[in-house]
Write a protein that binds this DNA or RNA. Structure first.
Lengths: 233, 233
DNA sequence: AGCTTTCATAATGTGCACATTACGCCAAAG
DNA sequence: CTTTGGCGTAATGTGCACATTATGAAAGCT
C-alpha cells in the first residue's frame, strides 16, 4: 500500500479499510471517526480520509454531523426492520423471477454455492461460512442479470451485514441461515416461485428477529484497536 | 443565494442546481461538466462545485472518469430497461402491500392525489401534471412508512425521470400515465393486490417502451444555456 | 500520405494553511 | 449545590497554489 501521488487505488484502499472495519464489527455504533487520527493510523493524508468518509456517508455507512464529525450510525431496531423489509420486497421478487425464468447456468451456480456452504458447515469453517452466507444473497441478485438491481441490493445488504456482524458472531452457529439457503434453492430449481418467495421471507424474518433481540454491549472499543493489525493488502 | 462562508446551504444549492438541470432535461447525455465553468456560472468556488459533483456521481446522477472529468451519463436502452425492471420489483411489492394493509389515511391521500392529477389534466397544466406523475410513485413508497424504501426508490426514480424528461416532454400528453394511476389506486382501495400489481407492471412497461423507442437528437445544447436563467432561489 | 512522436494547453487531483465552529472545563452567581 | 456564562482547545470546513494527467495538433519519420 505504498502509493505516492495521483493514485486512485489509494482512495479505494482507505475506503475499503474503513468499510471492512465496519463490516467486521470492529467499530461500535456511536464511535466518532476523527479525520486526523485515521490519517495517522492508515498512513495517508487527512484529505484522503476526508474523501473516503464523505463517500461512506453518501453510501449510508456512516453519519455526518456538520462541524461535528463523522460517526458510526447506531441503527435502531426500527431501522433494522425497515432494512429487512426492503430486502424482503427485493429478494422475494428476485427468487420469484429466478424460479420463473429457469436457466441452466443459474441452476449450476446455485447448486455449487450450496455445496460450498455445506462443506464449510462440515468443516466448521465459521469465517468462510459467514462470507458465503452473505454472498448467497448477492448471487441471487447477480443471476437476474441486472446491474441496477445488484447495486441497490448491495446497499441494503451491506447495512444489514454491518449490524449483523455486531449481533451475530457469537451465536452465528445457532442460526439456521445456511439450511434455509438450501431449501430456497430447492424451491427455485423446482420452479415453485411462490414457495421460494415464502421461504425467503421466513429466512429474512428469522434473521431480523435475532438481530433486534440483540442488545449492544456497554463498552465500545477504541479507534486504535479497531484498526490495529488490519489484513495486509 | 448570497452566502459567505461555512454555509451548508450553499452546498445544497449547487447540488440542487445541477440536479434540477438534469431533471429538466437541459443537460444532454454525454455533456462534460467542467468544474471551473460551473463555478463561474453558479458564482461559487470550484471546490464547492467539485463536492457537489462528487455527491452526484455517488448518487448515480453523473459519471466520473479519473483525470478526465464528470459527464452526464448516456443511458443505454439496456440500462433503462434494467432501471424499470427494478422499479417493477419494488413498486409491484409496494402496491401489493398497500392493498393488503389498508389504512384510512393512505386511502385519503391516494384519492386526493388522483384528484389533483385529474384537475391538472382538465386544466391542461402540463408542468403540474409532470410533477404529479412523478410524485405519485414517491407517494406510494411513502405510504409504506419505510425510510429505507423511500431512499432506495428515489434513487431509481430519479434516474428514470432524468431519462424520461429527455424522451417524453413533447409526447407526454399522449402518454396514458395518469389514467393508469387512477386504475392502480382503484385496485388498491378494492384491496386487490394482485390486480394492483399487474396494473403497475403494465404501467411501467408502457413507460419503458416509450422511452427506449426514443432516439437522442443530434445537437446537444451547451453548458451555458442549460444553466442560464434558472428559477430564482 | 499515413503513422508515430512530441510538446503545449487546459483540465482535474492533492496537499497545505487558515477560518470557523463546537465541546468541555472552570469559575462565579443565585 | 446547581446552573449559567465565558473562554481555551481541538476538531472540521474552505480556499488557494501547485502537481499531475489527458488531449489535440503539429512536426518528424518511414
Amino acid at each position: 500500500m505504498r502509493r505516492r501521488k495521483g493514485d486512485v487505488a489509494a482512495d479505494r484502499a482507505v475506503y475499503e479499510a474503513i468499510r471492512q472495519a465496519l463490516l467486521m464489527g470492529r467499530l461500535q455504533p456511536g464511535t466518532k471517526l476523527r479525520e486526523a487520527a485515521l490519517g495517522r493510523l492508515l498512513k495517508v493524508s487527512r484529505e484522503r480520509v476526508r474523501k473516503a468518509l464523505h463517500r461512506l456517508v453518501h453510501e449510508g455507512w456512516l453519519e455526518a454531523v456538520p462541524n461535528r464529525g463523522t460517526f458510526v450510525p447506531m441503527l435502531s431496531n426500527e431501522e433494522v426492520r425497515e432494512i429487512y423489509d426492503v430486502r424482503a420486497m427485493l429478494e422475494g421478487a428476485i427468487v420469484r423471477r429466478l424460479a420463473a425464468e429457469y436457466e441452466p447456468e443459474a441452476a449450476r451456480r446455485l447448486k455449487a454455492h450450496i455445496g460450498e456452504e455445506r462443506f464449510a458447515i462440515r468443516t466448521d469453517d465459521r469465517g468462510r461460512l459467514f462470507d458465503l452466507a452473505g454472498e448467497f444473497h448477492v448471487l441471487l441478485a447477480e443471476l437476474c442479470h441486472n446491474e441496477q438491481l445488484m447495486k441497490m441490493l448491495r446497499g441494503v445488504l451491506n447495512r444489514a451485514t454491518m449490524h449483523f456482524s455486531l449481533a451475530a458472531p457469537q451465536s452465528f452457529h445457532n442460526c439456521a441461515g445456511p439450511h434455509d439457503h438450501g431449501d430456497i434453492v430447492k424451491a427455485i430449481l423446482a420452479r415453485d416461485g411462490r414457495k421460494a418467495s415464502k421461504l425467503m421471507l421466513d429466512h429474512l424474518m428469522g434473521l431480523v428477529e435475532m438481530q433486534v433481540a440483540w442488545e449492544p454491549p456497554p463498552s465500545p472499543p477504541t479507534l486504535e484497536e479497531a484498526f490495529r493489525r488490519m489484513p495486509k493488502k
